[in-house]
Design a protein around this nucleic acid. Structure first.
Lengths: 208, 208
DNA sequence: GCTGATCCTGACCGGGTGGTCAAATCAAGT
DNA sequence: ACTTGATTTGACCACCCGGTCAGGATCAGC
C-alpha cells in the first residue's frame, strides 16, 4: 500500500526520487491517454512506456482512474489561466488577440494535453463535467459580461460573445487536436502561419 | 462463414433483410465508436446496442476492424462532397459562405460521424492517413488554387487559403465534437447562433 | 554490516476481449 | 410436410485487462 501522505514531514516534502518517478509515469500516461482515450488506454502500455512494471506503477498510483484524474487535474489548472489573463482595463481588441495568442501557444506547446482534453469532451465529458460547470462556466460568464460591456461602449464590433469564445477555442485547439490531418494535407504548415491568420481574422472581425 | 458476394445474382442484389441488419449494426457501432474510439469500443457493447449476440454480429462483419472500416468508408464519402460543391464560377464570398453553411449543417445533422472522424485524427489517423493523402489532399490543393485565383483577381481579401480552409473545418466541426462542453458552458446555445456568427465572421474577413 | 523503510517485480486472480464453432432456429419454396 | 439455405446463438478459446500479494532489491542512517 502506498504510504499515506498525512505524515508530519516525510523527507523533503515527498522525496525527489518519488516525484521524479511519478512524473515519468504521468508523462507516459499522457502519451497513451491522449492517443487512445481512457477506455482504450491500458496500464500495461503506460507502464512499458514509463520503463517499469505494472505493479510498480500501481505502487505510485492507486488505479487507472487515479492516473487519469491526476493528469486531468494538472491540465485543467493550466487551461483556465489564459482566460483569467484578459485585462478588463486593457484595450479590447488587443486583449482578445493576446488571449488568442496565448491559447495558440498552449496548443503548440502542449498538444498532448489538448488532445487528452478533446478526447474527454468527445467521450461526453464523463469525468470533467463538474469542472466545466464549476470552474469553466463562471469564468466564461464573467468574460462574456466583459465583452458585452466592450460592445456596449462601441469599442469592438457587436458579435455574439459566447460564439466568439467558442471560435477562439476551436481555432486554436484545432492545430493540436487535428495535427495529424494538417500534417498530411498541408505538410509545410508552420504555427506562424496560424498565428498571422488568426491575428488577421480577429482584427477584422472585432475592429469596430 | 458469411457467403461470398461474388455470386452472379444473390437475390435482390443482397437481400433487403441482410442490408437492414447491417444498418442496425452500423448504427449501433457508430454510437459506440464515436464515444470510445476504436480501441475503447467493444464488440459486446455494439452487439448489445444492436440487439443481437456478438457471434451474430460477426456473421455480418468479419471483424471489429471490418465494422470500423465500413463506418469510416461510408463517412468519408459524405465528407468530401461539400468541398466539391464549391463553384469556381460563382461569386467568391458567397461560394465560401455556402461551403461554411453546408459544413455546419453536416456537423449539426451528423455529430456522431464528426466525432468518429475527430477521434480517428486525434489517435494519429492510423486508419485513414491513406484517404487523407489520396482523397482529401488533392481536393484541398485544388481548392487552395481556386482561392488563390480569387485573391489574385481581388475578389476576396488576401488570406492564407490553407489556413482559411482549416479555420472552416475547425469552427464547424467544433459544434459537433465539443457539444458536451458547449452544452455545459452555454446551455441555451442553438445552431442558429453559430450560423449567424460564422456568416458575420467570414463576410468580414473575406469581403475585399 | 545491520536494520528498517522504500522501491520493485513475478506470479497470480477474476473478469472482459476478439473471435470460432457446432448446433439450433427460421424462412421460403416445393 | 420436407428440404435447403440463411440466420442466430450458447459454449468455448486464448489472450488481455485492472488489480493484488508475497517476497526480493535497494538505499539511508547507524
Amino acid at each position: 500500500m502506498p504510504p499515506a501522505d498525512d505524515q508530519p514531514a516525510a523527507g523533503p516534502v515527498r522525496s525527489a526520487r518519488r516525484q521524479q518517478t511519478e512524473s515519468a509515469i504521468l508523462e507516459a500516461a499522457l502519451d497513451v491517454f491522449a492517443v487512445d482515450g481512457f477506455r482504450g488506454a491500458t496500464l500495461d502500455r503506460i507502464a512499458e512506456r514509463a520503463g517499469m512494471s505494472k505493479p510498480n506503477l500501481l505502487y505510485y498510483f492507486a488505479s487507472k482512474d487515479d492516473v487519469h484524474a491526476r493528469l486531468l487535474g494538472d491540465l485543467l489548472d493550466h487551461w483556465l489561466a489564459p482566460l483569467r489573463g484578459i485585462d478588463p482595463a486593457g484595450e479590447p481588441v488587443e486583449e482578445i488577440l493576446r488571449y488568442v495568442r496565448r491559447k495558440l501557444a498552449m496548443s503548440r506547446d502542449y498538444p498532448r494535453e489538448s488532445r487528452l482534453f478533446a478526447g474527454e469532451i468527445i467521450a461526453g465529458a464523463p469525468r470533467i463535467s463538474g469542472f466545466l460547470a464549476d470552474g469553466l462556466r463562471p469564468l466564461v460568464d464573467e468574460t462574456v459580461g466583459l465583452i458585452r460591456g466592450w460592445i456596449a461602449q462601441g469599442r469592438i464590433s457587436p458579435v455574439d460573445p459566447v460564439q466568439l469564445i467558442f471560435s477562439i477555442w476551436a481555432l486554436t485547439q484545432h492545430h493540436a487536436d487535428f495535427a495529424a490531418q494538417i500534417e498530411i494535407v498541408a505538410p509545410g504548415d508552420r504555427a506562424g502561419d496560424a498565428g498571422a491568420f488568426l491575428d488577421q481574422l480577429y482584427r477584422r472581425l472585432l475592429t469596430p
